[in-house]
């Protein structure tokens, strides 16, 4: 059981994946940590099958130095061929590091699999997440699909291009 329900590409979708702790055995569709992915890369590649990873926006252990940066999305590059899902964690809605991670995945690393927002994923952020290339949302239990669609449509246009289909008014005017 999960405490969220999943909307993928605008449709309510049953969850088929599960988050797996670092020391727990894998199942058919596991979402694992970046640390485990890196440590067990060879074995995971040999295993084949579906694999997802979760990217943390916080780094309580400060492994990247005193500045407590989140996990580096670029580290996923060598493994993207084996990943069909990346879940970007938003520990608190106001930590916006994941928006950049999403755009880098979509627009620089050309990741085409499922890109999820997990954690504190709230109404007023959905549209922006969507524009950054996130197509799957773990929503709190009582959010209706209708509410979700309303949120996505609140602004009718965009000035700037991002990872979605909108070109941005600065580019599209007069065309």
């Amino acid at each position: 059981m999960t405490d969220y329900h999943l909307v993928i590409d605008g449709a309510t979708t049953p969850e088929t994946w599960s988050y797996i702790d670092d020391d727990a055995p894998l199942n058919d569709a596991p979402i694992i940590s970046l640390g485990r992915l890196k440590d067990q890369a060879d074995a995971l590649r040999a295993r084949g099958g579906k694999l997802g990873v979760v990217l943390q926006a916080d780094d309580p252990d400060k492994t990247r130095g005193k500045t407590s940066m989140g996990e580096d999305v670029h580290e996923l590059a060598p493994y993207l061929d084996m990943l069909s899902l990346v879940s970007i964690a938003f520990p608190i809605y106001r930590n916006g590091r994941g928006y950049s991670a999403a755009r880098v995945l979509r627009q620089e690393l050309n990741f085409t699999g499922e890109l999820r927002a997990s954690g504190d994923v709230l109404y007023d952020q959905w549209a922006m997440m969507n524009r950054c290339g996130i197509n799957a949302f773990e929503l709190a239990g009582d959010v209706s699909l209708e509410t979700f669609k309303t949120a996505l449509g609140e602004l009718s246009g965009a000035y700037q291009p991002a990872a979605d289909q909108q070109r941005g008014a600065l580019w599209a005017r007069g065309k």
């Binding site: 809605y93 106001r94 930590n95 916006g96 928006y99 950049s100 755009r103 952020q125 549209a127 922006m128 997440m129 969507n130 524009r131 950054c132 602004l155 965009a158 000035y159 700037q160 991002a162 941005g168 008014a169 600065l170």
Partner: peptide, 16 residues
């Protein structure tokens, strides 16, 4: 003005 438009509702840079 160009910067104003580009930065308005920028989806990536709203929770800096």
């Amino acid at each position: 003005e160009i910067i104003r438009q580009w930065s308005t509702f920028h989806p990536e840079f709203t929770y800096l």
